[in-house]
Write a protein that binds this DNA or RNA. Structure first.
Length: 542
RNA sequence: GCCUGUGUAGCUCAGUGGUAGAGCAGUGUCUUCAUAAGGCAUUGGUCGGAAGUUCGAUCCUUCCCACAGGCACCA
């Protein structure tokens, strides 16, 4: 297993794929394709367990009272769940298909798609890792106290609570002191419930992890995120504001949560998200043995799940005596017209719609590459970015239609119109020195940017080569002066232009694979002679 | 409430102790091989606000404002 191993986080299937996951998948895809000269294993998948999924499944069948106050009495959780689980299974199957469809929509090159509901592939690994952690003595049972809201069918926290309205003051005598809070959605006081959970001794490993992150044995990119994690790990008891992470709950009673992986040796408990979902990186990779030989080179994740990947996951691996991933790359979030995307605002951007919208009749891949390009160029790789149709159109016209598309058409037409030059001067080596230098410089810079995960800047650099090409052609004007004396010079100029285009395509291969192929295929050398096959417009102007 | 980060031209961002730069958009001009595309030139900024350190700050310090994120056992 000497493969370069790249993962995305696994997507939670309670909702349809949105553009945020598309961003992560596309970023990971570029890096995977860029490493293709080595052997690469690229994993993605879906996280399909948990109470939220169960609720989403019910909602999708139009059954559940969304936030209506209909408290389901006491019957919400327990028995008779076999039938329910079957329905949930149908739901997640359906959802997982939508995520898998991203592969063709965005031309992704993943090698495996892991689903946490896969009882044959995923469950045994999740349980094996659990056992290893248990054997290390890092799991213990503890009573968990929480505020349970019947309306939510879940534990709620302080931020879900609001002060009770004055009109209900009559009940004042009922409640104990300081208990004047009610659930903000359901206007009912939560119950204090105790339940027994398995806990993981996270605290045992925080020092070790802090060290490994500090010395980049576990790299976290970008720097700001690394510092954020180090801040979390640092214990400064003085001000009491930040204290190193506490042990985390690793299971839930199965009476409340049957939709998940059973805890080995304890039927009364179901694995909680960490123990279950994070192990996908091992189960999707052929199991513990493979991971031991070659752990992930890069995890691509969003900033919202940094804590789990940078602290809990390494702690689990240390406990299970398994190697840590080498790098965690953290991207930001995509805003929609400056606002957070949310269902209630109705501004969620659907990647499938985008691809369809920007694909032309003649070529649907133009839409795919246009979406890939926007995500990779407009969104700074490690930061938040903004999506709007206006920006998309602007990027498309300026960079793809006027920039790349026009340049390709320009060079190919030029080369095929003046092909007589080639009979005289058909040597591919015959490229101007300045052009060769610029090409080499661009390759160097772009590769450096990709290594640093600055994909947007890599594209910027590639586009500077296109710009250079336009300048070069304007300067050489190979279309005029066809007299004998300068035929040779024009031949070199056209060869040089073709070389620029060809190298742009090579550099773009990981970013816009389909467009790159089209360009490369239109430039053919036959018996030392250049044959140009003009293509249709790569990106028609909008 | 506590902690961290960000705030620079219409938009996206770069940048340095000595009074600011790029790309896109805008304007002018040249050009036709090209997708009314391209080249060149150019208009935009009291560098979030206030005070301080300094001969001098956009870059240093303090306070304030706005936004983002983290923590306060919420995944």
């Amino acid at each position: 297993m000497s493969k370069f191993y790249i993962t995305t986080s696994i997507a939670y299937v309670n909702a349809a794929p949105h553009i945020g996951f598309a961003l992560e998948a596309v970023q990971a895809d570029v890096v995977a394709r860029w490493h293709k000269q080595e052997e690469v294993f690229f994993l993605t998948g879906t996280d399909e367990h948990g109470a939220k999924i169960a609720r989403a499944a019910a909602a999708s069948r139009g059954e559940a009272p969304p936030k209506a106050s209909l408290a389901t009495g006491g019957s919400l959780a327990p028995k008779g769940r076999e039938a329910d689980n079957k329905l949930i299974k149908e739901f997640v199957d359906q959802q997982a298909e939508k995520f898998k469809a991203l592969k063709s929509a965005l031309n992704l090159s993943w090698d495996n798609f892991i689903r946490t509901s896969d009882q044959k592939v995923h469950w045994p690994v999740a349980q094996e890792v659990w056992k290893r952690i248990a054997e290390a003595g890092d799991l213990y049972k503890k009573t968990y106290q929480g505020l349970y809201c019947v309306g939510h069918e879940a534990f709620v926290t302080q931020k879900d609570l609001v002060a009770e309205t004055p009109t209900l003051e009559g009940r004042g005598s009922d409640r104990s002191a300081g208990d004047a809070l009610v659930c903000k959605d359901h206007k009912k006081a939560p119950e204090l419930i105790e339940e027994e959970n398995w806990f993981f001794k996270l605290s045992k490993y925080t020092k070790d992890i802090e060290l490994r992150i500090k010395n980049d044995e576990l790299r976290i990119i970008p720097e700001g995120r690394k510092n954020e994690v180090l801040g979390l790990l640092k214990d400064d008891p003085e001000d009491g504001s930040a204290s190193s992470p506490q042990d985390v709950s690793f299971s839930r009673p199965s009476k409340d949560l049957t939709w998940g992986v059973p805890v080995p040796g304890d039927d009364s408990q179901t694995m909680y998200v960490w123990a279950d979902a994070l192990t996908n990186y091992i189960s999707g990779y052929g199991g513990v043995k493979n991971w031991e030989k070659h752990p992930a080179d890069i995890h691509f994740i969003g900033k919202d799940i940094l804590r789990f990947h940078a602290i809990i996951w390494p702690a689990m691996l240390l406990s299970a005596k398994l190697p840590l991933p080498k790098t965690i790359f953290v991207h930001g979030h995509i805003l929609s017209d400056g606002q957070k995307m949310s269902k209630s605002l109705g501004n969620v951007v659907d990647p499938f719609e985008l691809v369809k919208k920007y694909g032309s009749a003649s070529s649907s891949q133009a839409g795919t590459d246009a979406v890939r390009y926007f995500l990779l160029r407009e969104i700074p790789s490690a930061e938040d970015g903004d999506f709007s149709y206006e920006k998309f159109t602007q990027r498309y016209n300026a960079d793809l239609a006027n920039g790349l598309g026009n340049f390709a058409a320009r060079v190919l037409t030029l080369a095929s119109n003046y092909s007589e030059y080639f009979t005289i001067h058909a040597n591919p080596q015959n490229v101007h020195e300045v052009v060769n230098d610029k090409i080499k410089e661009t390759q160097l810079l772009a590769n450096k940017k990709i290594t640093d995960f600055k994909l947007n800047e890599a594209l910027e650099i590639i586009w500077s080569l296109i710009h250079f090409g336009d300048q070069y052609i304007n300067e050489k004007k190979p279309w005029e002066r066809k007299d004998e004396k300068i035929i040779e010079a024009n031949g070199v100029a056209i060869h040089s232009s073709v070389a620029i285009l060809n190298n742009v395509a090579i550099l773009l291969q990981p970013f816009l694979p389909d467009t790159a192929d089209k360009i490369t295929k239109s430039i053919v050398w036959e018996e030392g002679r250049l044959e140009i096959q003009k293509t249709e417009n790569l990106f028609p102007r909008l």
